[in-house]
Design a protein around this nucleic acid. Structure first.
Lengths: 196, 196, 196, 196
DNA sequence: GATGAATGAGTATTCATTCAT
DNA sequence: GATGAATGAATACTCATTCAT
């Protein structure tokens, strides 16, 4: 996957700069960020972008893949933590912190995206599922929420915080705390029936 | 220019159709919906759109203004409800339901947007503040959240639910319920200090 | 087909200029002529081209359609000439003269092109068939060539003449004369078997 | 620069593969064939292509040169055939067969192209001239056509046949036969005056 | 010498906005 | 006032050509 041939030194440098620029640009402009802007920000030619990624969508997928993989490995580390509850809360914070200003909108069109990306997403889901299950078994998370719920809810704090004027940088932590409280068993009210 | 003379009958009809079409189009295509599509849907010429709103952004602002005002008046009604807690929950549901598939991303660039929109938003905030205060005084909402927090959090359920595959239509209610539980005083853990 | 609404005066002027420019540009650059060049030559904006023809291919098709229709109507006139042989020769000259420097390459991909174009081509073929048949019945054309052969061969003179250096303008007439002599019954040698 | 030092063994091998690949690629994709595709087909790097030929156009010229030279040598062989008429007809068939699917469009811009190519073309013309003269002296070709006419006309059959739907492979022989009949003295009608 | 990475001009097409009718 | 035709800047993507490795 990452193997193939080992990429020339300059090419690797460019690729790295490109991915960084793309991540930044997608983060601030959304998926509509223009390839030209990304190239300019990376300090490389437009053509070079397409040499590395045949399509803008492929570039987006690569950026997302990168993020998902980093998140997955963080989640995996936390699986061996002693306190399951703390592990889950920390994971949620990591997820939110990582996407700073950006969202997981790429998980949206699950089907038409890259195959390797789909796999990576699957792995992430698996690990999160385990993280949530452990927290539930430890009595730290209410039993009527599913791992899928947690995955979706973990996107909320950053998104919500992005609306606040003045860009108070740590605001998402505040909303994450509220949501975490909502996930706890204490004081939980029954959830509405699905698909209503 | 803002108040001004009373539109001719046909102009008013056009304006109404235009706003309805714009709301529908923005709702389904997002802010990238094209002016041409909106005009077509409204059954009017493209030029007419620009006669009413000098800019696409102005049109978007008008649509948003409309939504905000309707939301404000719903909130105002709920101010006279007997049960302050139920009133707040219902308001949150109304807010979420109203934006079905769409989000409040227009509140984002709070500063550079329309002045009248800013005012309307201010009014909405005022009313919500009262709604939240009453709920807090009634002991239904934890005291460490502010009305501003509630306003931001009310955007989350629909946003979050929009990522779920399969478009389960009522999913947002589920996430609203979790967030509401997070807003209750029971089982609340202290929020992190601001701006950390 | 040509009906719809009657096109505004300026729009019609533009459309005419556009078609003329496109014909000229396609003639000299081939189907690879760029839309930008065509627009510049027509003295209109690039966007205007796409307003009239949603696709470059549609523009090409329109130009071709125009040529085919004019050719068909000339052929039809010649059907009522008294001398069938002279009529055919004149038609061939008209066909060659009309495409001055250009070719009938559009008849190539018969299938994937415009439907109306396909129809127009069919009509042209029908009329030519009659023109050839009459010449054959009059003994002016050998019996072992088909109307389809004639259609193909009528493209040759201009094409061939285009290779000559110095752009001697009437050269194609010379080659048309040779080909016509080849189509006559006198001195005809049997054609090789097909598909060999 | 043209003669110069004797290529290294591998360089020669590359050059040969390159020319073969280019001929094939140009034949099937036309002059728009991409340098990258040609390089890939030749199994060499893109840069190597440009080391051998500074320009894509130069490569095209080289391919054409090759073809012209092979054609010239075939013509030369046929000069010593016993039957001058048969020799000419066979040459025309060889010329058509060789360009199968491709055309001699490179002779078009006779002036601005390569000097060596111009020379080679000159040689080809000389030999053909002799071939035609002999056929004329033998009474097999009408006296009012020139060798230049024959050269141009020999391009027609393949070109014309390429328009036929269904890719009937031997169709050009049919049109060559018609043209040959047009070149014979029997039944020849006088050609129109030049430059009319 | 050979390679393929980098480059940027060029291509078709879209769309907010202006303006003649 | 209303219309839709015209416009050109912007966008993703291609490809001949140059140059560092």
């Amino acid at each position: 996957m990452t193997a193939a041939r080992p990429l020339r030194a300059d090419a690797l440098r460019n690729r790295t700069a490109l991915l960084a620029a793309a991540e930044a640009e997608f983060a601030s402009r959304g998926a509509d960020a223009s390839v030209a802007d990304i190239a300019r920000r990376a300090g490389i030619g437009k053509g070079t972008v397409f040499r590395h990624f045949p399509t803008k969508e492929d570039l987006l997928a690569a950026v997302v893949l990168d993020r998902v993989e980093r998140l997955t490995s963080r989640a995996r580390e936390l699986l061996s933590a002693t306190d399951p509850a703390a592990a889950l809360w920390e994971f949620l914070a990591a997820a939110a912190g990582r996407q700073q200003q950006w969202d997981l909108s790429f998980l949206r069109q699950a089907d038409d995206l890259n195959e390797t990306l789909a796999e990576a997403r699957g792995e992430l889901f698996t690990v999160i599922t385990e993280l949530v299950s452990r927290a539930q078994r430890a009595g730290a998370v209410r039993l009527d929420v599913t791992p899928a719920d947690v995955i979706l809810l973990m996107c909320a704090p950053v998104y919500v915080a992005s609306f606040a004027p003045g860009a108070e940088t740590g605001l998402w932590r505040r909303y994450l705390a509220v949501i975490i409280d909502g996930l706890r068993p204490e004081g939980a009210h029954p959830l509405p029936a699905r698909d209503g």
